[in-house]
Design a binder for these strands. Structure first.
Lengths: 338, 338
DNA sequence: ATGAAAGCGCTAACAG
DNA sequence: CTGTTAGCGCTTTCAT
């Protein structure tokens, strides 16, 4: 069927070891003459090395397992890009597994990853349930946890600078002159939301604006959650004129809600949101966003993992919170998609 | 280090073959008593079978290679979901490779896929350059080409029903009473665009509306391409009142352009676009879209590939164009994100 | 119902 | 500089 290394050796009239040395360019030197013969034979047979055999022998697969909740979400999709590209450029393949936010599947993946003998794992948790992660930690596979709950399972974790994002968003609104600023958060007490909230509070404190708990609305994360949260805010006796939202879907909900109430954005109401779902923000030039470079985050987590795999000491910068920045789009006076 | 099957066999005081039969539940029967002993030993050692060794022995990897241009694009992201989930549920893993629309990388992937001994490949081409695909075809790996250029390389291909989509979009506009209907297409003569154009023309013919080549604008595929294409259309002596766009990004560009020209959508101008980039359409309730179920397309391509791998005769339905449908969103009078 | 052993294709230690 | 060979951990045929 497919040619093996022995076929090549036979045709080139050398030993199979020599063929190895040619292909791997080492660890032993090969005379140019022999090398040419071997290369010729390889070409003639259309020989392709068998990675499976190689992996078995080497006790290494040059594969990393990537567990994500959902490819469909643009946030994760970009992260995946960054990971896959970096891995590939460093000679690793990526096995993609998506949990569909399902803990049961996560448990299955731990087993799969173990039998597949992947060299390492990048794990984006489906929920705050860390049980599957603990199970994974038992296997002693090098693991990087992306965001959220890594610390709880005692694993290397990558996080975004939620605190600074919350701070930047709020300071921006303050600089625009707002005194009453709402924060539409997530329902669950994720570390994400907490960090963003702390940033919000510190920015207020810095500007000596008193903190009013009424201005914190526990939203959801979808468009309509934002819309309804805005209505709650507007119904307050002293409604806010600026709003910071946990993510961009809710920010868009806020924009829509504002329109329904006859408010002009950004004249009557300023809105800033994290751009978790980037495509959505992209269609809304009037929206100011807190941007985190997900591709870069993916790149970093891959680099961190590869260091772990090779038992190198990772650059400490890699585990610091990834920086965020505020992006104000040119509001050309151009209008909304309807 | 990690326990092997021999360790299990030794501990259970059976042969390693017996352990195999227990694990694989065949092909030879094992007495309940022995089975229990083996299971016990497995548990005790925390044994996990080594898939690499298994793959080598079986000459099969239960892995499919998935080559896509770009994870970032929501269109592909959904397809990937469908493929990955279906593959996993059938015992296959997916190796993800993204070409970043780069033909050079595609060539590299062909080699990688061969040395990895994947059982099959699902390939979404980066461009209309079929050379990498021809190279892949040489390897005789079971392959499904997603959309576009498959036929040219003589491979199984999956396509969307572009024709019917174009027809549905145009008929919808006709039913709304429009007589002058523009089509904003792609620049390159992809089969996609061609099919959609034919559907457009046939719908016009059916309604006995004369075809006017001036109403066909060769756009790009981005938001601003749609915006500018609309301006070209509006500048015609007899401007259209309905527009069909190749994709939803351009449709959104049209909406924005319409706003700039003071046109009210859908009162003064009706717009229908393919929803290739679903997230974008989602934020625009006034937009009517031609929907294709990308998750389902992914599912189908995986099923088709698995049939190919097992040398079964695939369900002929799988290779028929995937159906599309027209989706009119509730236009609640609710407004645009700004 | 079970054991022994060959061999999948590769790497690298050992022996010239 | 090159050849020989022992495994890596598994499946499965051939014995028993």
């Amino acid at each position: 069927m497919t040619a093996t290394r022995d076929d090549v050796a036979r045709l080139a009239k050398v030993s199979s070891a020599t063929v190895s040395y040619v292909i791997n360019d080492g660890p032993r030197p090969v005379s140019d003459e022999t090398k040419t013969k071997v290369l010729e034979a390889i070409h003639q047979l259309g020989y392709q090395p068998n990675a499976v055999a190689r992996n078995l022998r080497m006790q290494r697969t040059f594969t990393i397992g990537l567990v994500i909740p959902d490819t469909h979400n643009p946030y994760f999709a970009e992260v995946v890009s960054g990971i896959e590209e970096t891995a590939f450029n460093n000679g690793y393949k990526v096995i993609l597994l998506h949990s569909s936010y399902n803990t049961e599947k996560e448990f299955q993946f731990v087993e799969l990853l173990r039998t597949e003998r992947v060299d390492g794992v990048i794990w984006i948790p489906a929920s705050s349930n860390v049980e599957p992660l603990k199970e994974l930690a038992l296997s002693e596979l090098p693991t990087v946890v992306f965001d959220r709950v890594g610390a709880q399972a005692d694993l290397q974790a990558l996080v975004t600078d939620n605190y600074h994002g919350g701070y930047l968003a709020t300071r921006h609104l303050i600089e625009l002159g707002h005194k009453r600023i709402g924060y539409i958060s997530r329902p669950v007490e994720l570390s994400h939301s907490q960090g963003r909230l702390r940033g919000y509070m510190d920015a207020l404190a810095e500007a000596q604006i008193p903190f009013d708990p009424e201005l914190i609305i526990k939203g959801g994360f979808l468009l309509d959650d934002g819309r309804r949260a805005l209505f709650s805010l507007l119904d307050l006796p002293c409604a806010p004129t600026g709003v910071f939202t946990y993510n961009d879907m809710m920010a868009i909900g806020v924009l829509r809600g504002a329109f329904e109430r006859g408010l002009n954005v950004p004249k009557d109401l300023s809105v800033v949101g994290f751009d978790d779902i980037s495509q959505a923000a992209f269609t809304c030039p009037a929206l100011t966003t807190i941007h985190l470079d997900k591709f870069e985050m993916g790149r970093r987590s891959a680099i961190l993992l590869m260091a772990l795999i090779n038992k190198e000491i990772p650059d400490p910068k890699l585990t610091q919170p990834a920086e965020v920045r505020l992006i104000t789009r040119e509001t050309t006076g151009v209008a909304p998609p309807v």
